[in-house]
Design a protein around this nucleic acid. Sequence first.
DNA 1: AGGCAGTCCTGGTAGC
DNA 2: TGCTACCAGGACTGCC
Length: 285
Amino acid sequence: MPELPEVEVVRRGLHEHVAGRTVAAVEVLHPRAIRRHLPGAADFAVRLTGQTLRAARRRGKYLWVDLSGGDAMLAHLGMSGQMLVQPVGAPDEKHLRVRVRFADDGPELRFVDQRTFGGLALAEIVEVDGTPLPRPVAHIARDPMDPAFDADAAVAALRRRRTEVKRALLDQTLVSGVGNIYADEALWRARLHGLRATDKLGRAKAAELLAHAAQVMHEALGEGGTSFDALYVNVNGQSGYFDRSLAVYGREDEPCRRCGTPVRREPFMNRSSYSCPRCQPRPRG
DNA sequence: AGGCAGTCCTGGTAGC
DNA sequence: TGCTACCAGGACTGCC
């Protein structure tokens, strides 16, 4: 499941392989993949054609490519989305949703997505807090890797919430980029149970938690950034090149790496949370 | 207005 | 073997 580090790997790959190239043709093979582009698939294709792609950018789990015309091509990978750069004529992937061909007849850009939670759209750029953002991203908070990320402000925002700490970590309007995997990893490092109340969390503990979230994502990026083929811009939840370093996520009944207690799995928001019963005691009540 | 349940989607797997 | 049920989960929608 692509979270911030995986999306950053894709951003770097896009920047390297498509920046500076001009779009010659766009083919939308599945309408759901451009459902966030309200004017529809035909409009998406027409407006993207002829544009030159500029810098690839990211905030949290959203990424986009600036267009010569001033707008941006926005992408969210959802759960299973991939951006592939493939030679023209390479066989279509089973879940190929959008194909972008370039005027230089070089490798084409493909958006492939099995579960179609992700998608592409064209969006207007607006300025938020001094930073240009595609309009659909305007409400997304800065992520911990943003040079302008304000840790003190994020801690304050987190503690203002009246909810459970894991819910808050996953709230992209507080801090962006953290998904279920890195939330569980950060909570384990901070020795906090995800059901702890945010408004009863001390300032120092909240700051520690956010620092752990930033650190675990940074480490994952260090692993993922070196493991993808230069000609194959790819992030794939199933490939799991970050799995080796996970302490709790997906490790039910396996020993906690700190104390050896079997890791537990608990239902959480129609999915799962993983934690150590000893290091992360469940709050009372 | 903030919090939160419900919804979208498909491949893999467990269970019968 | 072949069916059904369930699980993965990010982010938006709409309700309270």
